[in-house]
Amino acid sequence: MPSELSPIHSKLFEAKAAKGLTFDEIAKALGKDEVWVAAAFYGQAKFTPEELAQLADLLGIQGLQASLPDDSWWPNRGLGPSPPTDPVIYRLYESVLVYGHAIKAVIHEKFGDGIMSMIDCKINITRKPDPKGDRVVLTFDGKFLPYAKW
């Protein structure tokens, strides 16, 4: 867990562990996706007041809404050093270093001059059994945004 987490976000992780819940279980209770919920636990996304009330009930945290930043708080996305030092995060970073230009070229060939949105993006992680060792299937489903001309 990054040391940059606020005390309340650390408290969310402690309560999650105490209840023995997964991000998927929490996400289903909130009607959200597990990756989005995990991002919110890290302060990289923002829960609504209604989601906070549901989360407080689920995790058994009294006064959760009062202890989180008010409506003027917005996530400061992008935790940690660059390049990242955590092995899992570093391998994701490495995948962009190695395949980034190839991915960019294929996106341009298929869509034109633009980018894949991380604002309008869904990320799914699944496990795929394989005789050589289970595979991680990571899917980024982002909206294409063409560059404007003026």
Score class of each variant (00 low, 15 high):
Pro84Trp: 09
Glu4Cys: 08
Glu51Val: 05
Leu97Glu: 15
Leu59Tyr: 12
Gln54Val: 07
Asp120Met: 06
Ala39Gln: 09
Glu25Phe: 08
Gly78Lys: 10
Leu138Tyr: 11
Lys16Ile: 06
Ile89Asp: 13
Ser6Lys: 15
Glu94Gly: 01
Ile103Thr: 02
Leu30Gly: 01
Glu25Pro: 02
Leu97Trp: 11
Pro75Cys: 08
Ser3Ile: 11
Asp120Gln: 06
Val35Ser: 08
Glu25His: 06
Val98Gly: 00
Leu97Tyr: 07
Ser117Val: 03
Asp70Gly: 15
Asp130Met: 02
Ala53Tyr: 08
Ser10Pro: 01
Tyr90Asn: 11
Ser117Trp: 07
Met1Cys: 11
Leu59Val: 06
His108Tyr: 01
Asp86Pro: 04
Ala102Leu: 07
Asp57Gln: 13
Arg91Tyr: 13
Leu55Met: 13
Gly20Pro: 03
Ile123Ser: 01
Glu14Pro: 04
Pro83Asp: 10
Met118Cys: 04
Asp70Phe: 14
Leu138Arg: 02
Ala27Gln: 09
Val96Met: 13
Gly43His: 08
His9Pro: 09
Ala27Thr: 03
Ala15Asn: 03
Ala45Ile: 07
Ala39Leu: 13
Phe140Gln: 05
Phe41Ile: 04
Val136Arg: 04
Phe144Asp: 03
Ser82His: 11
Asp71Trp: 14
Gly31Ala: 03
Asp33Ile: 00
Asp120Leu: 09
Gly20Val: 01
Val37Asp: 08
Ile26Gln: 08
Asp71Leu: 11
Pro2Tyr: 15
Thr22Met: 05
Ala38Pro: 03
Ile103Gln: 07
Gln54Glu: 13
Ile119Met: 12
Tyr99Gln: 10
Leu68Glu: 15
Asn76Gln: 15
Asp134Tyr: 04
Tyr42Arg: 09
Met116Gln: 09
Glu25Lys: 05
His101Ala: 11
Glu34Met: 07
Ser10Phe: 13
Lys128Asp: 05
Leu30Ser: 02
Trp36Leu: 04
Ala15Tyr: 08
Ala105Glu: 15
Leu5Met: 09
Pro129Gly: 00
Ala29Lys: 06
Thr139Trp: 01
Ile125Arg: 00
Asn124Gly: 05
Ser117Ile: 03
Ala29Val: 03
Pro75Ser: 11
Asn76Glu: 15
Phe144Arg: 07
Pro49Phe: 05
Lys122Asn: 10
Pro49Cys: 03
Thr139Asp: 07
Ala53Trp: 10
Gly114Cys: 03
Pro84Ala: 08
Phe47Pro: 05
Leu55His: 04
Val106His: 09
Ala102Thr: 06
Asp130Cys: 05
Arg77Tyr: 12
Phe47His: 04
Thr85Asn: 06
Leu59Ile: 10
Asp33Met: 05
Gln54Trp: 05
Asp141Ile: 01
Gln54Phe: 08
Gly112Ile: 00
Phe140Thr: 02
Leu52Glu: 15
Leu21Gln: 04
Glu51Ser: 09
Pro81Asn: 09
Gly114Phe: 01
Lys46Ile: 08
Ile115Gln: 08
Val37Phe: 06
Ala56Gly: 11
Lys143Ser: 09
Ser72Pro: 12
Leu92Lys: 10
Lys143His: 10
Lys122Pro: 00
